[in-house]
Design a protein around this nucleic acid. Structure first.
Lengths: 216, 216
DNA sequence: AAAATTAGGTGACTTTTGATACAAAGTTTT
DNA sequence: AAAACTTTGTATCAAAAGTCACCTAATTTT
């Protein structure tokens, strides 16, 4: 279960440019740190969002459930220094999450009360810059995904997917299943199995049960 | 050629919630209105962006040129009350446009100096809200595009494309060519011709040279 | 240990899309 | 009006991806 601890100066990890000391003090006094374990579902669709999560360490898989198609659609993997964009968006309408969020590994999250997130925008230039940068990054990522989806064949998309995952987990050994990859890429298990087989023949990786080892 | 005129209270058209009177006064004194004619290319890749365009009337087609693939990739159609998001993004790095922008029809644009756009974020709550809403809309559109690209066949994508275009031009009669649609959807002319033929058989539209008439 | 569940393998088939090639009709330029 | 260009029609072929069916192997539960 997720645990909440108080914060003690860990905010420096938050972003790569200086934050106003006053802002840091405000974060310190108003925000909490939450630790989420691997595979823990910590935001569900419909959850009332009174705090906006900002990633300090770890990765979060953000997805949406399409009830018509009875499928999960991957939105993005949030990384340290990023906010959960969708939760942030929810502040502008009904304060309810439109997405599910699951930790890909043990993850440390800064929880900032909604009111402050809004207030700080006009109060601190650095906060505004941080949020906008976060937004730009997400937008560009999405655009990249769109281009890849439209222009590449699955083989390339699988390679791209595995490379990114390998970067996130900082390992050439990826623990996952064919079904899971298929879900993230919006295709079927058979297609992924076939593709991974080809990639093994091309000496790009080694398949094991529940695991993929990237070569190179 | 684009013309610049001074502004006189047209800012109300800008967005659907009230703006601070001080902000309106600032817009009035610092911004200019530009009229762009149909099919006019008014932002080129690499252009120095000292002013951020905000659409008042009309539509702008925003695209990027992939020199590797020698193809244009459609990013979005900007509508009244929206900023040209990519131009805005450019403020955060080298101030150069990464995109091309062409008016889809006669378009009225508010040009706001870069410095003010940044300053107003922290100065006026309504401005911040306006810009963030603009992001959200763009992001959601993109997401929609991604879902469509991944889950639908071209027939559905063509229908969606034509419906949206019809909304924008406020007419069931759409002036366009098969080649143009193919470009926007990232496919080839033949595929679009074939698809439109099917859609005509299904009584969804009527094909004419350089024109498509939507039924229903 | 037997049964059930989960992960993965693979062949055969279908659908969709893209590529190629050429024809024909409509428009614009000369 | 002839020539050149643009737009559209269409047939054929190939490749890629999704579907179906059924099988094997590993792992977990009972």
């Amino acid at each position: 279960m997720a645990t909440l601890t108080t914060i003690n100066g860990e905010i420096k990890e938050l972003c790569n440019f200086p934050l106003e000391p006053e802002l840091i003090a405000e974060i310190d006094s108003s925000s909490k740190i939450m630790i989420v374990e691997r595979d823990e579902l910590f935001v569900k669709e419909g959850d009332q969002m009174d705090m906006i999560p900002l990633l300090l360490k770890g990765t979060v898989r953000c997805f949406y459930k399409d009830y018509d198609l009875d499928r999960e659609i991957l939105y993005y993997y949030a990384q340290p220094g990023e906010s959960c964009l969708f939760t942030y968006f929810s502040m502008f309408d009904d304060h309810k999450s439109k997405v599910f969020a699951v930790a890909e590994k043990r993850t440390k999250i800064l929880m900032v009360p909604r009111e402050q997130v809004m207030e700080w925008h006009t109060k601190y230039k650095s906060w505004n810059k941080f949020m906008v940068n976060s937004y730009i990054k997400r937008y560009m990522d999405l655009l990249d995904g769109l281009k890849k989806a439209g222009l590449s064949k699955i083989e390339d998309r699988v390679i791209d997917y595995l490379d990114k995952k390998s970067d996130r987990v900082r390992s050439k050994s990826i623990k996952t299943t064919h079904k899971f990859i298929a879900n993230d890429l919006g295709t079927t298990r058979e297609v992924i199995s076939r593709t991974l087989h080809h990639l093994e023949n091309k000496n790009y990786l080694i398949r094991e049960r529940g695991k993929i080892l990237l070569k190179n």
